[in-house]
Structures are given as C-alpha cells and as structure tokens.
C-alpha cells in the first residue's frame, strides 16, 4: 500500500467516521445520564434525513404520524400513572410535541427557505427521543443496565416497523447544504464533509461546556454519578433523563441533516449507523465525549481500510473488532469494585 493510497483511505475513513461522531456523542450522553444504551439513536438520524428530504420535495413528512402516536402513548402513560400534575403532563406530552406537527401540516407543500426546512426538521425530531424515554424507559428507570439495553433493542425493532409505514420503503437523499469544496495539499475535501467535522467539533465543545460549567449540566452528570445522591439534593432523575434524551434528539436531528445528503438513507438504515457509532462509543470507553469522537473516527478508518481489502467483509470486521476491544477494556478495569449479586438481571 503506497502512502498516497493510505492517505486517500484515511481521508475516506475520516469522512465515514464523521457520520458516526455525533451519534457516538449522543449515545454516550444518554448512557451517562440514564444508563440506557440508546440503540434507536441511529433510527432518529435516518428519520431526520427522510424528513428533510420530504420537506424539500414538498411532501408532508411521515414523521408527523410517529410524533402524534408517541405523544398519544406518552399522554396515556401519564394519565394512567398516579401523577397528579395533569396540566404539566398535558403541556409536556400533549401540546409541545404537537407544535412542530401543526407547523408541518401548515407549511408542508410550500417552497420553504432551507433554514426553515432544517428548523422544522429539528422541531419534528426533537420530541421523539424524550417521548420514547417516557414510554419505554422511565417506567423502569431503576432496572439494571441489561434490562434497559434489551428494551432499547426491542424499541428499535418496534419503531422501525412504524417507520416503514410512515416513511415507505424508498430511500431519500436531501440536497447538499453546500457544494463548495476545498483542495488542501493535493487532497480534495467536499464542503459537506468539513461541515460535518465542524459540527462534530462544535457539539463536543458545547457538551463539554454544558457539563463542565452549567448547573443543569452538573445536575445531569450528578444523576449519572450517583442516582440516590442526586435525589437527595432534589434532582429528579426523570427530568434529568428527559433532558438527556432531548439533547440526544437534537444531536440526531443535526446529524441526519448533515449526513443525509452524503449517503442515501432508508427507514431502517439508522440501525447499523447507530450500532457502528455505538462501537465507536464503546471503543472510547462509553463515558468520555472526546473518547467517543476518537472511537467513531477509528470505526470510520477501520471501515475504509477493510473495504479496500475486502468490501464484503467490512461490516463483519467492524462488529467483530468490538469483541477484542471489550476484552481489553475489561482487562484494564479488572480491579473494579466487588460485584453485587444481580437478582434483577433477567
């Protein structure tokens, strides 16, 4: 392999990796605060891209039905619970999610400025993760990581069934945000890719600032570090979880808008994107944002180098590499605390 080829593959790899970076950040964020391995994160990315494409084509995006369905279910859960704050529940689960839906009904079909299209896309994706949290995870917030993980995997399959109905089987590819491109040192960089990298860097920075310097961010971290301790100072883990999922939704929406124009996404493409991002997040330790970024880039590089060697086996290698990574991690943290018996397990 020549140095030139390696450089090309590396560039391709970074471009691949940029697809996973935001997702890896979102997965780490959700895991840290709620201990949920949010497998459906990738699905949200695909939905964002499909939504943006539909708006650009002047169609009403199918996502509105998903939002309405989830909001209805969440409201039902809220009413069935012993929660006494009806007004707040109605506002959070009944009214707020419906605002972007109403906007979509009003605006879809008209020619919209790109920024409005993007804003509307973000608005429609935003409620999804918090609603999924309310429906699937909050009722069992104290369950083991394992149970939460199984719920997350099942949830992916359930919502992708709905996604097929509302989005249809066709793929979509929204327009590029920028067609500019740059040449640096003989290598050709498309503007969209630079945008993705810049967004990833910005998101990493913002997350670091949020968690490092704001009280809300610290409260979220505190929930992750010690749930009981957090409750004892008055932090509601439920609200913290909802916030984390809201941030995850925002990251997924941004990611979908950015990567959609680069790769055609179908209603079910998100799963593998999410899982690869997840592999990256685990490589980075599942607890660190910069680690997640590096892990995601590593996955991208791995993919592009394996694809060169044998394109059919690139998925096999990406997933198989997780096994040695996990073993290595586990060996490094051998000296952990004594385990407790897991009655709850499964």
């Amino acid at each position: 392999m020549t140095a030139e080829l390696a450089l090309l593959l590396a560039q391709d790899g970074v471009a691949n990796g940029a697809i996973y970076v935001l997702a890896a950040l979102g997965i780490v964020l959700v895991f840290l605060v709620t201990r949920v391995v949010f497998v459906p994160f990738g699905d949200l990315i695909a939905y964002a891209s499909l939504t943006l494409a539909a708006l650009q084509e002047g169609r009403r995006p199918g996502i509105v039905w998903l939002v309405l369905l989830l909001a209805g279910l969440a409201l039902l859960f809220e009413l069935a619970g012993r929660q006494r704050k009806w007004g707040r529940a109605l506002l959070a689960y009944g009214v707020l999610p419906c605002l972007p839906v109403a906007a979509a009904f009003l605006l879809a079909g008209r020619a919209l400025p790109p920024l409005v299209e993007m804003a509307l896309t973000i608005g429609l994706i935003l409620p999804i993760a918090p609603l999924l949290y309310r429906i699937a995870f909050r009722p069992i917030a104290d369950a083991s990581v394992l149970v939460l993980l199984i719920v997350a995997v099942v949830l992916h399959f359930a919502i992708s069934g709905i996604a097929l109905m509302v989005f249809g089987p066709e793929g979509a590819r929204p327009r590029l945000l920028t067609t500019a491109s740059f040449e640096i040192g003989g290598l050709f960089f498309p503007g969209q890719m630079l945008l993705m990298l810049a967004a990833s860097a910005l998101a990493t920075l913002l997350l670091a600032l949020f968690f490092g310097f704001t009280l809300s961010g610290k409260a979220l971290r505190a929930t992750a570090v010690n749930r009981v301790g957090a409750r004892l100072v008055g932090i509601r883990p439920g609200a913290a979880g909802a916030t984390a999922f809201l941030l995850a939704s925002a990251l997924a929406a941004a990611s979908g808008i950015l990567i959609g124009p680069v790769t055609t996404l179908f209603y079910d493409s998100g799963f593998v994107i999410g899982l690869k991002a997840f592999v990256g997040a685990i490589i980075g330790g599942l607890v660190s944002y910069p680690g997640a970024v590096l892990g995601a880039l590593f996955v991208g590089l791995l993919e592009s180098f394996t694809a060169f060697w044998n394109s059919a086996l690139k998925e096999v290698v990406v997933f198989a590499v997780l096994v040695p990574v996990l073993i290595l991690r586990s060996a490094l943290q051998r000296h952990g605390a004594e385990e407790e018996p897991e009655e709850d397990g499964l």
Partner: peptide
C-alpha cells in the same frame, strides 16, 4: 472463552457484536 469474563452489561453487548458479525458473514 473470550467473552465470558466480561462483567455486567459488557457481555450482552459483545453478543450483539459477534451476533452481527456472524450474520454479515
């Protein structure tokens, strides 16, 4: 032999990984 020493949720995660790898294979 490779994965059963993994603790907590790392073991089930590894099953997703090799499960997918075998499926793609």
């Amino acid at each position: 032999a490779a994965t059963l020493r993994l603790g907590g949720h790392l073991l089930p995660l590894s099953t997703i990984a090799w499960g997918l790898a075998i499926f793609f294979l």
